[in-house]
Computed example of a mutant assay.
Amino acid sequence: MSSSQPFEAAGQPSGEFEEFEEERPRRRAPWGVMALVLLTGLALIRNGSGEFDVGPPQPESAAAADRAPVKAEDAPVPLTFSPAHRVRIKAIRVDAPVMQVGLDAEGWVDAPPADDPNLAGWFTGAVSPGEKGTAVVVGHVDNRQGPAVFYSLGSLKKGARVEVLRQDRRTAVFEVYGVEVFAKNDFPGHRVYGNKGVPELRVITCGGGFSQQSGYDGNVVVFARLVDVR
């Protein structure tokens, strides 16, 4: 996601784990507001060199999210709170550190710095990955130099795995059950972010149509549910 406006970064993790105590975030973003934030604050600008003018891959219609709910008794036992440390998606060669992103003074969601192409952000206003509820990880699709961490997110298939290494050294393993792109003027916030009663994950970047004037006009959203803990 590159942006015409700078984003303020918060809490980028170092390469090693750090011992710390952290309270669960108490301020939760209203999902209706969150949807609008992700559709505007994470709009990306392609670099204009011509090298990447074909744009990032977009989800296929066959990748639409399954609507059948998962019963709580069929899901792994939810984990307790622990911040995300790293995200790995083997299918698209993602292996990136995760920084914490939250709300700024005006209530907008921060995003990872656009000048670091291999950095994702965990939104602290939602649950941590592996907890009961829907965790949210965001990242840029490109920046002015070229592809970024989630450039290939739209090419993921159902059944792919997303691994999130947490600060407590446990790895929450999620299985993708849907990949869709939503236009900014018709974003289903409650469907994307709503609590399904089991541990789920959304991985989000920009996508859809692109113009030099306004950037991308939508968001690619990966729907995934917890299937294992290591």
Rank of each mutant, 00 (worst) to 15 (best):
E73Y: 12
G48N: 12
D74W: 02
A72L: 13
V70R: 13
R46E: 14
E51N: 09
A64E: 05
V77M: 12
L79R: 04
L44H: 03
Q58Y: 11
N47G: 14
G55F: 10
P59V: 12
A63E: 02
R46V: 06
G50C: 11
P56I: 03
G55L: 03
A62T: 14
E51H: 13
L79P: 01
A64K: 07
L79W: 07
L79E: 09
S82Y: 01
P56F: 01
P56H: 03
A75H: 12
E60F: 11
D66S: 10
F52W: 14
A63W: 06
S49V: 05
G55N: 10
S82W: 07
A64Y: 04
D74T: 01
T80G: 14
P56E: 01
E60Q: 12
P78Q: 04
G50D: 00
T80V: 11
P69A: 01
E60S: 13
P78C: 05
S82Q: 02
D53N: 11
V77T: 15
N47D: 15
G55V: 12
Q58N: 14
G50W: 06
A65M: 14
P78I: 06
L79H: 03
T80K: 15
I45F: 12
V70Y: 07
T80N: 13
A68V: 12
Q58L: 15
L44W: 02
A62H: 12
E60L: 14
F81Y: 15
S82M: 03
P76A: 08
E60I: 01
A65D: 08
L44E: 04
V77H: 14
K71R: 15
E60R: 13
L79T: 00
P59L: 14
A75M: 11
V70N: 00
K71C: 02
P57H: 02
D74G: 01
N47H: 06
F81L: 08
E51I: 15
F52V: 08
R67Y: 02
D66F: 11
P76L: 04
G48L: 09
E73I: 14
A62G: 05
V70D: 01
D53V: 06
T80D: 13
P59C: 13
T80I: 06
D74E: 12
A68P: 00
R67W: 01
A75F: 13
A75V: 08
G50M: 02
F52E: 03
S82V: 08
R67T: 11
E73G: 02
G55S: 04
D66R: 13
D74A: 08
K71W: 00
I45K: 02
R67I: 10
S82H: 09
A72C: 05
G50N: 04
F81A: 10
P69N: 07
D53M: 10
F81N: 03
P76N: 04
I45E: 03
K71G: 00
V77W: 05
Q58W: 14
V77Q: 13
D74R: 01
I45M: 12
R46C: 08
F81M: 05
P59A: 11
